[in-house]
């Protein structure tokens, strides 16, 4: 298998890359870690005329915490860098928890957050994590930059709100209040496979163990991730018990109509979501999951 021939450039600044992307007049693609695009090129499902490699643009990589607590992750930051970052572990534990689920270590050493978001696979972890944490995606073109809420970024399978002359520059994660809890669960046939379905959640409990707020992101059930308003409604204002976690799982499952494919039927995915929402909430509540009153 050989990719079709292409022209290749590896700019060292974002400006150069954007100029090439917007002004080449060619069918150009940007190359992040290449863990999705290169397989597609090897299969000749993608045959760009011009490949713009972002790997030499150092300003696109890295993790920084702003004074207002917002965590900025550059588009070319590798999954593995996020996984091993002490700052991420401290400020965004949900990401730390979820990173090992992304493929295998060899893929995580190369693949990037920006690449995963721009590829927009329905079963990928990053889009759902950005839904759960209410992230913002910063897109840049030669005419400027704009901020896109993560929930409005994926438009369908492998389709995003990015314009042809735009790249993802960075992803902004809002400050997460101290005491917020997190859960991440997914099921795949084999370790590192794409998820059949998965759940990423945040949970805020008050001192009495009552749910103040939550966000439940579900992926692998539809073309794009979704936030379960039904599960949130079931939780809000109620004491976080095992029974409540199960109710939230049922509420989430009742509201979805997942795809069937050769990996899993719609019915199976629905059952998985019921269980995974329950497990994610239990994981989030931890030792503070109250015993149910008989």
């Amino acid at each position: 298998m050989k990719p079709a021939a292409f022209e290749y450039i590896a700019p060292v600044t974002v400006e150069e890359a954007l100029e090439a992307l917007g002004g080449s007049g060619k069918d150009a693609r940007v190359l992040g870690g290449g863990q999705s695009l290169v397989p597609m090129m090897n299969f000749r499902l993608a045959q760009p005329e011009l490949l713009i490699d972002l790997n030499r643009i150092s300003e696109l990589a890295g993790i920084a915490i702003r004074e207002d607590g917002v965590v900025r992750i550059g588009a070319m930051t590798r999954h593995r860098t996020v996984e091993l970052s002490p700052e991420i572990r401290e400020c965004l534990p949900l990401l730390h928890e979820a990173m090992p689920y992304i493929a295998h270590v060899q893929i995580r050493n190369r693949g990037t957050i920006g690449g995963s978001l721009a590829h927009a696979d329905p079963a990928a972890e990053w889009p759902a994590l950005c839904f759960a944490l209410d992230a913002t995606i910063v897109a840049r073109s030669s005419s400027g930059s704009r901020e896109i809420p993560a929930t409005e970024f994926p438009l369908g399978i492998l389709t995003t709100a990015l314009e042809p002359d735009e790249i993802i520059a960075e992803v902004l994660f809002p400050h997460q209040p101290a005491g917020r809890r997190y859960g991440f669960q997914e099921i795949s046939r084999r370790r590192g496979d794409f998820a059949l379905t998965g759940v990423a959640c945040t949970l805020d409990l008050n001192a009495d163990g009552v749910v103040d707020a939550s966000r439940i992101a579900i992926f692998g059930v539809d073309d794009i991730p979704l936030l379960s308003a039904e599960a949130v409604d079931a939780l809000t204002g109620n004491t976080m018990t095992d029974v409540l976690a199960r109710e939230a799982g049922r509420a989430a499952a009742a509201a979805i109509n997942p795809r069937s494919d050769l990996h899993a039927s719609s019915e199976y995915r629905t059952q998985l979501i019921e269980t995974l929402v329950y497990r994610a909430l239990k994981q989030a509540a931890g030792a503070d999951l109250l015993k149910d009153v008989a």
Binding site: G34, Q106, N109
Partner: peptide, 21 residues
Amino acid sequence: GACTILVNGASMRSCLMFAVQ
């Protein structure tokens, strides 16, 4: 995973990289 090599010390798929990189 048959093509796994180390690039600057980290294991990676050599089939998913181009030599120019």
